[in-house]
């Protein structure tokens, strides 16, 4: 089982904690960002295997971060899950538009999140 790096981006500490629990349970390493600026920076520097992006963050929203990451050379290689508290149809569209790999809305079920992480980061890494 390969250990992957997961970058958790959310401005609410409790939510970061809740997500961390699920990621740790899957056995991956964690990186954290508290705003969009940190999210973008850490993504580009550390190139984590999975980026979990909250939308409602200060500095830059999750959508903007995702867009910017995709504009990079090799931008398509990032695996990005957008987490939104807005939950409207337009958000789903927006997520697709900016090139998110997956999409989940708050309040989310930690089980579902775990399932999604398992799907995106398979045990046998074949990148």
């Amino acid at each position: 089982m390969s250990k992957k790096t997961v970058l958790i981006c959310d401005d609410e500490p409790l939510i970061r904690e809740a997500i961390s629990y699920s990621v740790k349970k899957e056995g991956h390493d964690i990186l954290m960002a508290a705003d969009g600026g940190e999210a973008l920076l850490f993504s580009m520097e550390k190139k984590p295997d999975l980026i979990l992006l909250d939308v409602g963050m200060p500095v830059m929203t999750g959508f903007e971060v995702c867009e910017k990451l995709r504009e990079q050379a090799d931008g398509d290689k990032y695996k990005i899950v957008i987490i939104t508290a807005f939950g409207q149809a337009s958000d789903i569209e927006k997520a697709k538009q900016v090139g998110a790999t997956r999409f989940i809305s708050k309040p989310f079920s930690p089980r579902a999140l775990q399932e999604m992480i398992r799907e995106i980061l398979p045990e046998q890494g074949d990148e």
């Binding site: 609410e12 409790l14 939510i15 809740a18 997500i19 629990y21 699920s22 409602g56 508290a85 807005f86 939950g87 708050k106 309040p107 989310f108 079920s109 930690p110 089980r111």
Partner: peptide, 16 residues
Amino acid sequence: HELRTPLTSIKSFAEI
């Protein structure tokens, strides 16, 4: 958004 934030914490930790 604001309502969902505490709700997310409640849901997440309850499920955990």
